[in-house]
Structures are given as structure tokens and as C-alpha cells.
């Protein structure tokens, strides 16, 4: 049996859980989902509807409202002994916070951020910032895993698993106490280190167009904004936007180059990006040689369409 620790906001289940369930389903054996929260019937229901889930365990208590690692780990440990071979969580802020605690208490290793399941005891995970992938086998009786969501498809909906209330583990006495939360407003991430970067070039024609076309897209994707030197020189954006040899060096998971031809100096600043998208009207632009996905066409039509095709955050 496999237990997946759900990621949710009490009212509903978060998509990270769907990706983790897909990974869990590859391990062999029925997949149970633990929803630990407060007034979290909505989330439990959401978990029950994920295809491939056999049962939802629902632990509900006030101290699980803003759950600490200590309390969540205690809850996982409380249900873990009932025959689970794998304890799985999405590799989110919460999963990373909780699961090593669980593993240490069980005296087993954790395998972090798996990107593939080879067999029930063998997994692939990135090391050295994704510059290498290790295949590791765990010899422990219980496998504690966190799952990189982007490596597994989201499990579909349409399931109807039973929801079972489980006893709540008592609050840990010597644990952290959450005293406040600030959710980030739509402040954009910094260029260096951002997961997604959108850069604009001379093809945008003006600073006004740059803002009008790129900012809404960046808002949708929570992306940082960058620019080619040509766009900086033309005064569309300030100097610190510049990506390239003499600007910032970025290697995001997704880099979207808009109206950038791809001078070698620009490529030097972004060519290590994991996925590169290029949008340009000139099919011969050098940027297309390194782009994974090139889209030739009028960026004034493409950009609004692309923005509209993405869900608002």
C-alpha cells in the first residue's frame, strides 16, 4: 500500500497531489491519500475524485489548520504503520518540510524529488541542479519519497474513492508555532533564479508594446521579465533587464524569447535554459536554432493569444 500526503488548502485539493498520485500509482499497490487539515472535507472530497486513488484518509483538527512539519509528520507517522510500503509527498515546500522528519523517525532514507519510478524500490532523481540524473535503489523496508510534479502527468479526475476519518495525532508539544502568513502579491520574481523568464527584443517596437504584451503574460506565468541588449539600447526597458553576455545569465526551466533574433551575446546569457521558446516573425532568426519550440509569426497576434490560453493565477 502506498500513502500520498495531500497538498491542499482545506477547501480543495491542489494539483501537486494529482502529479504525486500518478507517481504513486507506478509503485504497485493501492494508493491512499492522507488529507490532514482543518474543516478539510472539501479537500478530502477532491482527493477522493482523483482517478486511481483507492481510499482517502481524512484527519481533521484545529492544529492542522496551518500545519507545521512537526504536526504533519506526527499525523503521517500515526497512520504509517498500517501496512504502507511507500510514503509519498509532492516535492513542494510542505512535502520537503515534512517528509525528511518522517523518514528520520522511521530510521529510513528519503529519496528526494524523484522524476521517474523504475520499480517499487528504484527511482530516478536529479542531482547537481539537474546536470545529472541518478538511479537509486532503496534497501529500506519503507520508502519515503518526494515527487517532482513536473516529471509526472496529473492524474485525471472522475474517481470516487471512499473517505475514511482517521484518528488525529495529538499536537506536538515542542513544535514550531505558526504566527503569521504573508502571501506574495503579484510581485515578479527576480530575473536570476526565476523558474520562468520572458524576454523581449527589438521586435516589440517600443517600450509601450513591451509592457503591453509581455507583462500580462508574465503575470499569468509568474515569470520574470528580461530583454535583449537591443531592447535595452533602444530604451524599452532599464539596463538591469538585460539578459546576455554583458547582462544577466539565466537558466530557468522555461525561457520565452519574444522578438529576439538571437545574437550570440544574447544566447550566451540564456542557452542553458531547460526549455526555450522563441517567437519571431523571421523564420531564419538564429534564435530558432536553439529553441525547443519555435513559433514563426506576428508577435502582436501571438502574444495576446498565448496569454489568453493560460489560466489566470
Amino acid at each position: 500500500m502506498i500513502l500520498v500526503l495531500a497538498e491542499h488548502d482545506h477547501a480543495s485539493i491542489k494539483s501537486a497531489t494529482h502529479h504525486a498520485v500518478t507517481a504513486a500509482a507506478k509503485l504497485g499497490g493501492p494508493v491512499h491519500v492522507l488529507v490532514a487539515g482543518h474543516d478539510a472535507a472539501g479537500a478530502a472530497k477532491g482527493a477522493a475524485s482523483i482517478a486511481g486513488v483507492a481510499k482517502v484518509l481524512h484527519a481533521d483538527a484545529p492544529h492542522l489548520a496551518s500545519p507545521t512539519a512537526e504536526n504533519l509528520a506526527a499525523q503521517v507517522l500515526a497512520v504509517a504503520p498500517s501496512g504502507y510500503t511507500h510514503l509519498v509527498a509532492p516535492a513542494t515546500g510542505q512535502g520537503k518540510n515534512v517528509m525528511p522528519r518522517v523518514a528520520a523517525k522511521l530510521d529510513v532514507a528519503q529519496v528526494s524529488e524523484i522524476t521517474a519510478v523504475v520499480s517499487a524500490d528504484t527511482f530516478v532523481r536529479p542531482i547537481y541542479a539537474g546536470n545529472a540524473f541518478a538511479t537509486v535503489r532503496s534497501g529500506d523496508r519503507v520508502k519515503v519519497l518526494t515527487v517532482r510534479g513536473t516529471a509526472f502527468d496529473a492524474a485525471a479526475g472522475g474517481g470516487a474513492a471512499p473517505v475514511e476519518a482517521v484518528p488525529v495525532a495529538p499536537a506536538v508539544t515542542r513544535g514550531a508555532v505558526v504566527t503569521g502568513q504573508e502571501l506574495t502579491k503579484s510581485e515578479r520574481p527576480e530575473l536570476v533564479g526565476a523558474r520562468i523568464v520572458i524576454s523581449g527584443g527589438r521586435g516589440l517596437g517600443s517600450g509601450e508594446n513591451y509592457r503591453k504584451l509581455l507583462e500580462p503574460l508574465a503575470d499569468r506565468l509568474n515569470a520574470a521579465l528580461g530583454a535583449s541588449r537591443a531592447a535595452v539600447d533602444a530604451g524599452y526597458v532599464p539596463n538591469d533587464y538585460q539578459v546576455g553576455q554583458t547582462g544577466k545569465i539565466v537558466a530557468p526551466e522555461l525561457y520565452i524569447a519574444v522578438g529576439i533574433s538571437g545574437a550570440i551575446q544574447h544566447l550566451a546569457g540564456m542557452k542553458d535554459s531547460k526549455v526555450i521558446v522563441a517567437i519571431n516573425k523571421d523564420a531564419e532568426a538564429p534564435i530558432f536554432q536553439i529553441a525547443d519550440y519555435g513559433l514563426v509569426g506576428d508577435l502582436f497576434e501571438i502574444l495576446p493569444a498565448l496569454t489568453a490560453a493560460l489560466p489566470a493565477r
Binding site: V108, A109, V111, T122, P126, I127, G130, N131, A132, F133, A134, T135, V136, R137, S138, G139, D140, I276, F288, Q289, I290, A291, D292
Partner: peptide, 15 residues
């Protein structure tokens, strides 16, 4: 507790 069976390069970029 773990044994590393293999370490591989990430798939190469095909632009």
C-alpha cells in the same frame, strides 16, 4: 541505505 545504480547526463538539447 541507498545504492546508486547509474548516473546519467540529462537528455541533450535538440533545438
Amino acid at each position: 541505505r541507498l545504492s546508486t545504480l547509474k548516473v546519467a547526463e540529462p537528455p541533450a538539447r535538440k533545438g
